[in-house]
Design a protein around this nucleic acid. Sequence first.
DNA 1: TTTCACGGTATACTTTTGGGTACTATACAC
DNA 2: GTGTATAGTACCCAAAAGTATACCGTGAAA
Lengths: 131, 131
Amino acid sequence: MSKPRAKLTDNFPGCPVESTLGFLDGKWKGVILYHLLENGTLRFNELRRRIPSVTQRMLTKQLRELEEAGLLERTVFAVVPPRVDYTLTPLGLSLEPVITALRVWGKEHVICRDGKKFVVAPEEQVALEAA
Amino acid sequence: MSKPRAKLTDNFPGCPVESTLGFLDGKWKGVILYHLLENGTLRFNELRRRIPSVTQRMLTKQLRELEEAGLLERTVFAVVPPRVDYTLTPLGLSLEPVITALRVWGKEHVICRDGKKFVVAPEEQVALEAA
DNA sequence: TTTCACGGTATACTTTTGGGTACTATACAC
DNA sequence: GTGTATAGTACCCAAAAGTATACCGTGAAA
């Protein structure tokens, strides 16, 4: 997607980190990739039900970007009502260690409470309450 | 940082992924974290030299945000010229598996060439040339 | 006949957010 | 005056996200 990330003009150390993050830029991409990793193939509406607060518009948009980046593929069925399946490509599947690391860290260090995000430091100490 | 990410109002599956990504949002944060992980403590200018195309303004800004998120701490020395050291907190250090996963994936799948980014699919096939 | 539901996507427009530029500041040394 | 190292403010604009509305074909219900 087009979210600004470190330009890859220079191939400086740490550049691969930002490159990878560039593939995950976009409000719902991390979650989308997570669900496709967990479930294999999902329809548009199945994804939407798993991500309660995403709008149709944004889900369509992010899915298209992920497709363009080569991380997933769409299978359009010539049926009515319309049916479109989304599956990760081998490239998308190769992101599994990344998504897993992200999920594990988030699960251990971030607590959701009353719409707020609490960060838990490794010492189980609430280091910061971020709105 | 303040880049739009999935709100944590709902604690739906996949939410931890987006939570973690929220800590990495910002043009230079991935690289900054990488360098601090590799080197322990770095001064402002040492960081800047390792990230060739970052501006002072943006580096200051992203460092401040990382500090506010509890991922790093600043040590200000009462000297002239000014000296400020940046070190990861334990929370920041706990991101090591994440940063490593990002770096490994980027190294294997993204090629930088002539200012363009090429994606290499697991089958060593150039799947997409992304500008 | 008309309306609604189904599932998915498009266009037009608005609002929000992030990254960048330009300039300024500090104290000391040369 | 210029350089060192670090960081602040003001402002601009591009990009991302969001809202509203429309579209498609078929079947069912009013």
